[in-house]
Design a protein around this nucleic acid. Sequence first.
DNA 1: GCGTTGTAGTTGAGATATCAACTACTTGAT
DNA 2: ATCAAGTAGTTGATATCTCAACTACAACGC
Lengths: 163, 163
Amino acid sequence: MGETNDVRWLDEWQQIAWRAFLAGNARFFEALGAAHDAELDLNIGEYTLLVQLSEQPDRTQRMSALADGLVLSRSRLTHTVTRMEQRGLVSRCAADGDRRGVNCRMTDLGYEALVAAAPGHVRAVRRLLVDVLDPEELEALGRIMSKVGTAARRELSEGAADC
Amino acid sequence: MGETNDVRWLDEWQQIAWRAFLAGNARFFEALGAAHDAELDLNIGEYTLLVQLSEQPDRTQRMSALADGLVLSRSRLTHTVTRMEQRGLVSRCAADGDRRGVNCRMTDLGYEALVAAAPGHVRAVRRLLVDVLDPEELEALGRIMSKVGTAARRELSEGAADC
DNA sequence: GCGTTGTAGTTGAGATATCAACTACTTGAT
DNA sequence: ATCAAGTAGTTGATATCTCAACTACAACGC
C-alpha cells in the first residue's frame, strides 16, 4: 500500500549487534533448558508459571491474567495447564463473579515442586546470566529489553486494532 | 555432590532485570513472528537459514556447520531442511571428501524467496529493535548478549564433556 | 427484554520440536 | 588388517505448539 520500496538496510555494526542478540539468546535458552532437563522436574515454562502463581494471593490467578503475565497465547496456556493439572501441580476452579472465568491455583504439590526446583534454577540463571555480567551490564540489559518489550507490545496491540 | 545447600537468591534489582529480559524477549519474538506471518512467505527460522546459506560460497554449507551456525539441533535442522526441500527452497547433495556428509544448498527459488522477504524482515527488525534503541544501547545489547552467548556455549560444551 | 458484539476459555487437527535409537562412515590404536 | 570409538545425519514416536473454530457467558444499546 503506502509502502515505499526502498529499505534502510542494517549497517555493519547494527548487523553485528543484531546477530549477537539472536545467537546469544538462542544459546542462553538452550543452556538454561539443558540445566532444567538435567537436574529439575520442571521445564522453564512450567517453572515460570509456578513462580507467577506463587506471587498471587491464594496462589491463584485467572487464566487470562496468567497468559498475559507469561506472554503466552490463551491456547498454549490451556494446554500447558491441562498437562500440569494432570501432574497435580495446579488445579482449576471457577472464578467468582464471572462465570466464564477460570482460576488456576497452585497445589501444595506444585509448591513443593517449585521449592525443590528454585535453587537449581536460580543457580543456572546466575551461572548463565547474572554472574556473567557486570552489575551495570545486567541493569542495562534489563532496561534495554524493557524498552524492546514495550515497543513489541505496542505493535502487537496496534496490529490487533487495525482490522 | 559437592554442592552446598545455600543459594544466593537474586536481589530485587537483579530480579527486575532478569524478568525484563524474559518478558522483553518473549514479546519481541512474538511480534517478529507475527510480522513474518503477516507479510512474508518465510518464518524466522527459514529466513535465518537462507541468510546463512546466502553467505556461504556457492550458497552451500554442510548440515553440521549450518546447525552450529543457527544454534539448532541436528535433528531439528534435518526436519526443517526436509520441509524446505519439499518447497524447493533448498536442495541436498553429498559432501565431497566425507561420505557421511551432506551439503545443503540454496536453490534459485530459495534465493528469490529470500530477496522477496528481506525488506519486510529488515523493516520489522528496525521497527522492533534497531530503531527502538539508541545506537549506544543497541551496541551495548550486542556486546552483552555476545558475552552471555559465550558463557552458554562454554557450559554446553563442558556439559557434553563431563560424562 | 432482545439482539449484537466482545471476552474467557477450550478443543482438536495439523504443524513443528524433541528425544532416543539407528545407519553409515571416519579415525585412530594395536 | 581389524576393531573400538567417534562423527554426520536421519528416522520415527512422542510431546508440544499453533491456528481456526467453537461454547458459554458478559456488556452494551435500544
